[in-house]
Computed example of a mutant assay.
Amino acid sequence: MDNLPDFYIQKAKIELNETETRKKQSLEQFNEWLSKHPFVKKHEIDPSIIVRLFRSRKYNMDKVYENINKCIIFQKNHQELFNFNITKLLEIYDKGVILPMKIRNADGQRIIIVRNKIFDDLKSSNYDIMRMVFTVGDTISYEQETQICGVVVVMDLREISVRYIANMDVNFFANCIRYIESAGARLKQINIIGLPSIANTFLEILKTMLSQKLISRMHFFKNVQDLTKVMDVKNLPVEYGGSEDADDCLKCYREKYKESASKYAKFIESLEIDEKRMRNYEAKEMFKGVGSFRKLEID
């Protein structure tokens, strides 16, 4: 597995049912399936993205196919959301709104800090927020270690304004979360700090649209001190009482982020879809109850 340490190789075997033979066979099976796809006419899919999807669904190929179709349909139904301006994305990235920590936790998981107060200060739109989440998430998802072990997200909601909460579209965010899961993210924990009481209604509605497994991975903390009772302090930025310098983390990932965001945009542009066939497929799947708005089961 590309010279991965034994810790990750064994974890992939035990938790994801992965072997080199299975990976090879799955890639062959996938390519055959894609060649007969009902509505994709042309594509340029990086093999590393395909393996990421295999791992996210533990090599259950039916789920892999279902998730790929969901992603493509979501992308085509929300094309304006994927109209990436790389320069603008980099400007927002440099503000430190989303911090990928350099040090993994004991389980090999990558830690992501989302500082919503900065989004608020920038008066970011819902689209700006999700574009950042998509592209930063895509950057770390190229890491084999992250594909195998997953991600721990820390959502810092302290000091966000009423305006910020009022502008949140619950349906939009629920659909984006489903897309993120379908695209191969293994969300192992979502730790939320300082949820304002005014946001409780938003959260309760959001929960009705998510799977019970994902909801069970959401944990709430009044402040950073409470968070450090369940997370190793070394995995947090200095401003949270940890040992990692936020600026160093941003610099460490900046070039990877720029490359990944560009690659993400090119992938979206490379897809050629038969729109009529896609709409027919979407209608059939929605009728069967397995369409874009079903609650996703995650691993």
Rank of each mutant, 00 (worst) to 15 (best):
G241F: 00
L206F: 12
E275Y: 05
H43N: 11
N67T: 07
Y93I: 01
D2F: 03
T139M: 09
Y240L: 08
I72C: 06
I129C: 05
Y127H: 10
T135I: 04
T208H: 05
E244C: 06
Y281F: 15
R55I: 03
M278W: 04
V238Y: 06
T146Q: 04
I205L: 14
D107V: 00
T21A: 11
I73M: 14
A265N: 13
I112H: 00
F39V: 04
V151K: 02
M61Y: 07
M218T: 09
F172E: 09
Y142K: 14
N235A: 03
Q189N: 12
D232M: 05
N223R: 06
S141I: 04
P47Y: 01
R163K: 14
Y281W: 15
D232K: 11
F82E: 07
L210C: 12
Y179W: 09
Q225L: 09
F119S: 01
H37E: 06
T208L: 12
R163P: 00
I103E: 11
D128V: 09
K95Y: 02
K70D: 12
N235L: 08
I140F: 11
G96I: 00
E204W: 04
H219C: 09
K24I: 11
I86V: 14
D121S: 15
I180H: 02
R52Q: 13
P5L: 10
M168A: 15
L206H: 10
R163C: 05
R163V: 08
V64W: 01
